[in-house]
Design a protein around this nucleic acid. Sequence first.
DNA 1: CGGGAGATTGACTGATCTCAACCCGGGTGG
DNA 2: CCACCCGGGTTGAGATCAGTCAATCTCCCG
Lengths: 234, 234
Amino acid sequence: MKPHNPPSARECFIDNASIFRHLSHDELAKIPIDQEPDFYKRGTIIYSEGSRIYGFYCILRGIIKIYKTGFDGKEQIIRFAKKGDIMGFRSTINREPACTTTQVLEDAYICFVHADVVLEFIRQNGNFALELLQIACKELGEANDYITDIAQKTVRERLAEAIIHLRKEFDLDKDYYLQITLTREELANIVGTATESVIRLLSEFKQDGLIELTGRKIKVLDEKTLHKIANMNG
Amino acid sequence: MKPHNPPSARECFIDNASIFRHLSHDELAKIPIDQEPDFYKRGTIIYSEGSRIYGFYCILRGIIKIYKTGFDGKEQIIRFAKKGDIMGFRSTINREPACTTTQVLEDAYICFVHADVVLEFIRQNGNFALELLQIACKELGEANDYITDIAQKTVRERLAEAIIHLRKEFDLDKDYYLQITLTREELANIVGTATESVIRLLSEFKQDGLIELTGRKIKVLDEKTLHKIANMNG
DNA sequence: CGGGAGATTGACTGATCTCAACCCGGGTGG
DNA sequence: CCACCCGGGTTGAGATCAGTCAATCTCCCG
């Protein structure tokens, strides 16, 4: 079940791109970097909205879906987390219960760092604090864009935009399909619409030669036109 | 025009609720806390989306509308800032152009703190960094709620919710009307709908005895029912 | 008094949602 | 081995929420 080549936790803490890259040797000594990262199987819920969480989750491998549950039980996908991303810092820092649920979409290896350690690092190491602030601010900017899009764009525009985002965020597989596979319902929960609407629009896009569909796999054929449909800046 | 009792900048930096409360005397010495805060008249745009900004804005008095401009020029209000709030930290920290426009709704006094100083404080003073992180994370949580609401709720629900939020965030005047006055269009730009829809729904709420309207002033009469209509948790 | 911005109202349209039926492929239990 | 079930995926029809357009009204101001 579990593959035989788990990544080393060191990847997560010592890598150049890691938020922990600014830590000194002494500081690094406080995290169990030699411990094996935890393995989470597809479908596992790592933590749920409303539950207490006790620290950070750093993704080493895999894909996590992060969502909120609306009033009528419908899920709204807020973002995805993948290699190099962290989850749970909002709750850790504000000492509040989680405001999202996180579920594994693709088998994942994850390191956990306890809140006390993180808070100590923030206080002790200015560069680490700044790094975290930058991550939070980046997400904040993306969230603001998201709000504006959902409030003002049509479903068609948002779906085109979502596909482009997915293409930018995730790799392609060997056949140039998006690496991430989502059900139509999950796509609908990104865009904020009904499953049936996504289905209809996807087959329109396919008719128009913008994408190719094979089961849940999506291949982008004409990014330029998708961009135009999405009325995007970025 | 400009009132005769400007607040002292000291309020902003030494107050208990201020994000600067953790600064030492030496650190405080680096900000011109004895300088008079800047006065901005209603209607003034403090900075625009896409422009470079060079630091933080700390609101001492007044109300600021923070919004993004969508593809077709329609504004989407992201939040309001008032006494004790800060603006512009996202761009300051990520060294990016502003992603929102900020416009004065109610005559304001504002202190400006240069980016270099802020970044130095973040690096030097862990408690200050943590304070900022908490603000960023709080906003992030609110943004996520906002996304879910806009994506899943009807206009009617969102308008009810918006009114409740305004009531929580702002004081009431002597007649128990909401202190903040917004045009119907601005209300529509919070909710993410058309002006006409807001007008129709407001008069429905009025018919139902939930609110009272006097020009642009709104008085909440039946918060409980509004809550119910909004399907709110908080 | 004329002009302009914002507020209102009505009529119409249409993008989406909802509901319901049906399909398809995989897995399971008899 | 086969019937059945179940979770998605599709499709169609009908209902409706909410956006657009246009006319009118009401203030407020110079």
